[in-house]
Design a protein around this nucleic acid. Structure first.
Lengths: 148, 148
DNA sequence: TTCCATGCAAAGTGTTTGCAATAAT
DNA sequence: ATTATTGCAAACACTTTGCATGGAA
């Protein structure tokens, strides 16, 4: 269930320059079911290290993503969240009401693939699957947008 | 291959108030493999109707999405594209190099589902699948981000 | 004639960047 | 001592909004 080494340990192993700010961000991102937005990471980090700046949080998150230690999850329009669980292959279940996210390991995922013509000559590196629906709290069904 | 009725026809059927601006946006969005950003829609619309404003393009796109006649495709960081092909179920193949998008109908998609515990009590309304890779032009492989 | 859509420009988001001061190795 | 990181604030890209004008039905 848990990662073999903490994010921080993995960063040390990479000989990444550890600063109080980077360490704090890494600590905030510790866990298997964490999906925080940059602002949330900033808020949480600030509680432990009041002088940290938002720019540093963004810089750090971008570096973690570039290193492949954290992945970005696009939950919806303009909503980017950061997921430190990059070691266990998984996908996401997103609530269209409140934005809550769960990691999931769907059935049938192994059969997914693009056949010849549909590959369009691409080399496929990854497959992102996002299940969208309503969580128990936002229950009923979509807020029935009125239209036309 | 083609939609039974054009987007514009569908809008008329909905008794949507047709203005030159809305008609132009609908015309720009005509087709099965169209994935334009708001800016691109604006640029194309402007060629036909120079006095159209970007705000109107955004308003119109948002209304089309709310009506369910166009869907938003989140290709990557901050890139929202609009896809008028909402009648034929399909997914997307995105090039991580140039951002090119293709509609695809992957094999094995029907077996995809969340079993009990993984459903977390959600009612699942849709499943988005995005294949990411490199198109023939951006060929090789990822630009190998340097790190640590 | 009534009501709604438009255009404009200003205001909002969320994110990135330049640069001098500062800290990690 | 060297070199990279930080914080700040300004700059950015994208999107939304308020309001008076103009156009669709």
């Amino acid at each position: 269930m848990s990662q073999s080494a903490s994010l921080l340990d993995r960063l040390r192993a990479r000989q990444w320059r550890i600063t109080p700010q980077r360490r704090t961000v890494a600590e905030v991102l510790h866990g298997d079911h964490v999906h925080l937005s940059a602002d949330e990471v900033f808020a949480a980090a600030r509680r432990r290290l009041p002088e940290i700046s938002l720019a540093t949080v963004y810089n750090t998150l971008n570096e973690l993503v570039a290193m492949g230690e954290v992945s970005e999850v696009r939950a919806g329009a303009g909503v980017t969240r950061y997921d430190p669980n990059v070691h266990i292959r998984h996908h996401h279940l997103v609530c269209t009401g409140c934005g809550a996210i769960f990691d999931v390991r769907p059935e049938g995922i192994t059969g997914l693939r693009l056949t010849g013509p549909d590959r369009h000559g691409y080399s496929v590196d990854e497959i992102d699957v996002v299940f969208r629906g309503r969580c128990p709290s936002c229950a009923p069904s979509p807020p029935a947008r009125s239209l036309a």
